[in-house]
Amino acid sequence: MRMRKIYEKVIVEKIYASIEKASFSLEPQIKKLIYDAKEKEKNPYGKKVLEVIAENIKIAENKKIPICQDTGMIVLFFEIGSKTRIEFRKFKTLQELVDFAVKIAYKNMYLRKSVVYVPDRKNTATNTPAVLWCENIPGDEMKFSLMIKGFGSENTTQLRMFLPGVEQNEIIEFVAECVKKAGPNPCPPVFIGIGMGGTAEKAMYLSKKALLDIGKKKRWKMAEFEQKIISKINETGIGPGGFGGNFTCLDARVKTFPTHIAGFPVAVSISCWAHRMHQESI
């Protein structure tokens, strides 16, 4: 089988550029959801928050100031074509390569180094290691999705192991309850990723991966369920900033995986309005 060679330098440069994009600007599909909500929000506090958010996005882009001071942990989802081969020379592993790119990006771009060792909580001083996930895909392409994940929202993550016979509306209730419990902490209006099925950790993984689909074209199969979730969450009235309003959740996406006859894991990942991500193909 002929393998397509991919050089370390290319991957490092793409990751570096992705961190730069995601730190100082939001993807167009995310901005559109925020700006639409700003026009439609009825609550004066909620509207004010969305106006400030819009202003913040503009200042971050124009003056190159990080959108949020929590420049997060880097989460990277790689999809590696089975007909590709990374030419490792300088680095021994993909993790090592990724961490190199993250380290220089955080230093050069004056991003906050928020990663600490566990359990002693000493800062690693480089914002590494990144959280790295790799999947194998057919073909000779390599793709990655990079997410800058802040912990105001990460701390509100939930997992519930439902019984097999759980009804759809119980799941919707659970997701809305997660957002209600989180209240103002994850910086609403939020984006929701839901992972259903698999094992506990697979559901968690899927919920994070589902956040990558935010604002993109809906898949008809899940669109109705996702819409019900959004509506249920918005009934809470938490609103932008948690000060009340019509818009608590701007989009929700579901990813599924077959599960065991004895269970039904459901995981909920929440992203703040500053959903910072970027996708690249090599």
Binding site: V49, G152, W273
Partner: peptide
């Protein structure tokens, strides 16, 4: 305003670290 660090930085006129520098 949560997540609006770029906006809020515009209202700061001076900033200096005064203690616990080792905490980064």
């Amino acid at each position: 305003y949560g997540g609006c660090g770029a906006y809020l930085s515009q209202f700061v006129k001076k900033c200096e670290g005064i203690a616990f520098f080792e905490l980064g």
